[in-house]
Design a protein around this nucleic acid. Sequence first.
DNA 1: GTCTATACATTGATAGAC
DNA 2: GTCTATCAATGTATAGAC
Lengths: 187, 187
Amino acid sequence: MRYPPGHRAETRARLVREGGALAKREGFARSGVDDLARVAGMTSGAFYRHFAGKDELLAAIVEAELATTRARFAAIETNEQLLFALDAYLSMTHVRNPEIGCVLPTLAAEVGRGSAETRGAFERALAEVTDVLAEKIGDRAVASAVLTQCVGAVMIARGLESEAARRAVLASARKSARALLLAGNLA
Amino acid sequence: MRYPPGHRAETRARLVREGGALAKREGFARSGVDDLARVAGMTSGAFYRHFAGKDELLAAIVEAELATTRARFAAIETNEQLLFALDAYLSMTHVRNPEIGCVLPTLAAEVGRGSAETRGAFERALAEVTDVLAEKIGDRAVASAVLTQCVGAVMIARGLESEAARRAVLASARKSARALLLAGNLA
DNA sequence: GTCTATACATTGATAGAC
DNA sequence: GTCTATCAATGTATAGAC
């Protein structure tokens, strides 16, 4: 059977995209190769034509996800938009929907247990995200701190049971992140 | 065979303690019941005399670990000690040794994917930790924000490959956490 | 390029001996 | 209370047909 040109790249991209969504929701360690392949519309046999193993997929997921995050930050032009993005990150909608949210609160801990190659890919991609954010904020240290603050808050909020407790954690983080931004070069 | 009184409780405690250390290092999902039992010096058969399943152990680990964290914070008496604890949390030693470190950066994401019971136990235990910290800092929102800031920074740092990048993330978080403390009621 | 089929290890969990 | 032995199910990964 013949396939149109670019089909291979497209299939790989689907594995990364859909597999990434599954991993963000269920956890990477808990997602089997069969599952990761199935959500992308194929079987595990086809999976291994694209990746040598699960580890390689994790690196690809992290790279693709952080590229998306970077693009989202790059689109920010005004301080108003920056504060809006902050609120969206620290929202109940984000907490409730990990599969369409940021990769950091869900998979960063698993990257830490991954291969050196995966951590290298993570480091490069995160540096770009931080750079873009630093450009908008005016201070790289503040950008990094705001990022880790938001990531920690969303992850902790997801571990909580009651809506009230989740909202409290998000509100505290929002207040603190805003204070950090004001203390930085941001007007 | 007969066992001295309290043997059962002691065995269970060992399962929670040693199993917790393993889960913090390797991840809970990646740790099998056989492994969790083995590091506590027993087999999986014995494991099920103490817990109905893996989920129950996770709840017990989270409770015990956060009780330890709470006790550590409770021992803080001066502002100097508070800043010292902050530096210790945001240290390379902590980043490099998850098995003897805080449970939050390693297992919070997995708690979020756990049962409602596990999340309930997590919420109660974390509330106590936050309360104790709020008492020392003077503001509960600041206490929560500092906590999530530190947790996020340590988790992200562990995902990075180079020592330089890790140090940069920790330094940014340290600076921001100190600023938050100064802006709060802390002298 | 993707499939089916399968190898082989490990998973969570149970039963029964001691 | 803990052990050994074992289960069915699922894990990662490979081989070969189409």
